[in-house]
């Protein structure tokens, strides 16, 4: 083992190779590796963000669904209430109408009855007058006996 000028030449070659590697080999490959690492981590982060936004969207959907459900049940309840109110009102109206009709009918009947009674009374009094005239064989002066006739009519 003898040291000679080979050492200097090897050192020069070494320096040249180090320079070459540091200038032409290391930067592009390291750059490619780092770019890829960044891409991968970005992709993972984007995936994570997508997952989170999906979860929040699902939560919003659930919220909206729940709200829609409560609102629809409210509307249904309101409708039910309105329906029963309407029916009740109609029933009441119908009952009032019926009562009115009944009252009117009753009044009419009463009127008819009193009219019939009046007619009957007149006829009966006429009949009674006629009967009495026949019995008395003479004409009853209506005018003379008006008070009497009226009293009779009243009694009937």
């Amino acid at each position: 083992m003898d040291i000679n000028f080979t050492l200097v030449m090897q050192a020069a070659a070494f320096a040249a190779f180090v320079w070459f590697t540091a200038k032409f080999v290391w930067p592009p490959l390291m750059g490619a590796i780092e770019t890829r690492q960044k891409q991968i981590s970005d992709g993972l982060a984007a995936g994570e963000a997508g997952k989170q936004s999906l979860a929040s969207a699902e939560r919003r959907i659930a919220d909206l669904l729940a709200e829609a459900k409560t609102r629809s049940s409210e509307i249904i309840a309101q409708g039910e209430k309105l329906k029963s109110e309407t029916v009740d009102a109609a029933k009441q109206q119908a009952r009032a109408e019926a009562d009115r009709i009944l009252v009117a009918a009753k009044a009419e009947i009463q009127q008819e009855l009193s009219r019939a009674r009046e007619t009957l009374r007149n006829q009966v009094s006429d009949l009674a007058v006629a009967g009495a005239a026949q019995i008395l064989k003479r004409e009853v002066d209506a005018k003379a006996h008006a008070d009497l006739l009226a009293a009779i009519r009243q009694q009937l």
């Binding site: 040291i3 050492l7 200097v8 050192a11 070494f14």
Partner: peptide
């Protein structure tokens, strides 16, 4: 084998 030459290894080590 260049590394079996002490000149090579000394060149590297001295660098």
């Amino acid at each position: 084998v260049p590394t079996a030459d002490v000149n090579t290894t000394f060149a590297l080590a001295l660098s």
